[in-house]
């Protein structure tokens, strides 16, 4: 049974914000609006991290997802000529919905193993994390140094890949003209 306390209430609030805006991202026609909701959903995830006392991860979530990935998506949306304002539902909608439901079911299976009170950070908070960033730093440069170095190579490949794609397809990206009337 869910304990009635302020942590659980906050957890419910933030998870509702996250989930509702995430659903909005999927169903809303205007790509820009769904992008806006996506940012809100990222912020909701960040606040869920905060509830887990993982403030560094929360900040990283905010910075990388809400601050940078969303910019990347903004430009990606701006590259699509016509759909940005009136995005028709895809014919794969049913398939996507089924996948989503399946994934949700799997998630529930996992979650049911845990006690929900443990997920809300109450138990973690009792451990009294005072400083997460030191531990992360020590681990990242000690035990997980390989992952740390591999991350840089991954990022390098992403950059090089993007450069080569843009360079080879530079003309293809530019040709799509935009001739849609406004809503007027």
């Amino acid at each position: 049974m869910i304990e009635v306390n302020i942590y659980n209430a906050a957890f419910l609030l933030f998870s509702m914000i996250t989930l509702l805006s995430a659903i909005g991202v999927a169903v809303i026609n205007s790509l820009m609006r769904s992008l806006f909701l996506l940012i809100i959903s990222f912020i909701g995830v960040a606040s869920l991290f905060v509830l887990l006392s993982a403030d560094f991860i929360a900040i990283a979530q905010l910075l990388i997802y809400a601050g940078s990935i969303s910019i990347l998506l903004l430009f990606a949306v701006m590259l699509t000529p016509e759909v940005s304002i009136n995005n028709q539902n895809s014919k794969y909608f049913l398939f996507a919905a089924l996948t989503g439901i399946l994934f949700t079911y799997i998630m529930f299976l996992f979650i049911s193993i845990f006690d929900i009170n443990q997920l809300t950070g109450l138990s973690l908070d009792k451990l009294n994390f005072s400083n997460t960033i030191d531990k992360i730093g020590t681990l990242l440069l000690g035990k997980y140094i390989i992952a740390f170095e591999l991350a840089s190579i991954l990022l390098l490949f992403a950059l090089i890949g993007a450069i080569s794609i843009v360079r080879s397809n530079e003309s293809d990206f530019n040709i799509v003209a935009t001739k849609i009337k406004g809503k007027k």
Binding site: M32, L35, F36, I39, D55, F56, I59, A60, L62, L63, A66, G67, S68, S70, I71, L74, S130, N131, T132, I133, G182
Partner: peptide, 28 residues
Amino acid sequence: DINVGILYVFAVSSLTVPIIFFAGWSSM
């Protein structure tokens, strides 16, 4: 009094970018 103070300020202020973009884009 948080231990990620600098990053917090940096992360929060990075939210300005999409907000400004939405302001400009939505004006059409």
